[in-house]
């Protein structure tokens, strides 16, 4: 820091101290908010500027609190940042009435500092939001992957929502674990709730099927809607020898017949199932 820059800064600091009441009043008017929350902030800022070490930790702490408090009250992050930026205008008026060249130079530096602090409130807001989103994503992951037992020896995984690699991993692990625990030999992966299937999602599905097959269970993919079937064919995705069915009911009927059960439909409304020992 050169002696010259030092002098301009000290000038601004002196102004901030001498004109404290006036600037604070003006800031409060411009920002249209209560003087109490701004007073602490102003004090902390003035002390930090008077300090040789340029330590803005206290100011940042207060700003983070202000940002959170205002977010809770329903203000947008732009509003909060605008409150901080209003200080520039208030100080500029003081600098203009002072009129010295040093003060004007110092104001440029001060203005940049306020820009940083204003952006910081934005950052705090974004970080808080990010955390909420992350938490929710995690909860969603836990919620969205049930493995249900359809019949003795038949389990189903109704997939709902977009499949990504993290989710596939969870689904795969859960399905395989269930296969071990229940000794089921047939698994149905129902993708009725999957909005779109691209090459990557198909890849994930294939991996799950192959893993289940390695464990000794047979996998059927069901719930393929007409548009999705069309997409899969258009993309040229090969499902190989994996059995696919249009609906969960078809898949269940297939798995039942594979496990040796006989399905007879004497009347349209009733289904009787009889299991035979092989």
């Amino acid at each position: 820091m050169t002696a010259h820059a030092d002098a301009t800064r000290r000038r601004v600091h002196d102004l901030l101290r001498a004109e404290e009441e006036r600037i604070l009043q003006r800031w409060t008017d411009l920002a249209k908010t209560s003087a109490e929350e701004l007073r602490d902030l102003y004090r902390a800022l003035r002390l930090a500027l008077g300090d040789e070490r340029d330590d803005l930790a206290d100011v940042r702490g207060l700003l983070a609190e202000l940002s959170r408090e205002r977010a809770r009250q329903g203000h947008t992050p732009s509003d909060t940042a605008r409150v901080v930026f209003c200080l520039k205008e208030a100080v500029h008026e003081a600098v203009a009435s002072d009129g010295s060249a040093e003060a004007l130079k110092g104001f440029i530096w001060f203005s940049r500092l306020i820009d940083d602090l204003g952006l910081y409130t934005f950052e705090v807001y974004a970080t808080a939001r990010e955390k909420i989103i992350l938490d929710q994503a995690e909860q969603l992951l836990e919620l969205s992957t049930p493995v249900v037992k359809l019949w003795e020896g038949i389990v189903a995984v109704p997939l709902i929502g977009t499949l990504d690699s993290a989710r596939t991993q969870v689904v795969m692990e859960k399905l395989l674990q269930t296969l071990v625990e229940t000794g089921a030999e047939h698994a149905v992966i129902d993708i009725t709730g999957v909005p779109a299937v691209d090459t990557q999602v198909a890849q994930h599905l294939l991996k799950t099927v192959v893993a289940a097959r390695l464990m000794g269970a047979e996998c059927v993919i069901s719930g393929i809607r007409p548009q999705i079937a069309h997409t899969i064919v258009t993309l040229g995705i090969e499902f190989g020898d994996i059995i696919t069915k249009a609906s969960l009911a078809d898949a269940l009927a297939y798995a039942l017949s594979r496990s040796g059960a006989e399905i007879s439909t004497p009347r349209r409304t009733r289904i009787a199932v009889r299991t035979e020992e092989v």
């Binding site: 674990q177 893993a211 097959r213 390695l214």
Partner: peptide, 16 residues
Amino acid sequence: MRPAVAITLVELGLSL
């Protein structure tokens, strides 16, 4: 075959 083993084999690209 354990689930972890099955997943590893699939990731290795070995479908046996």
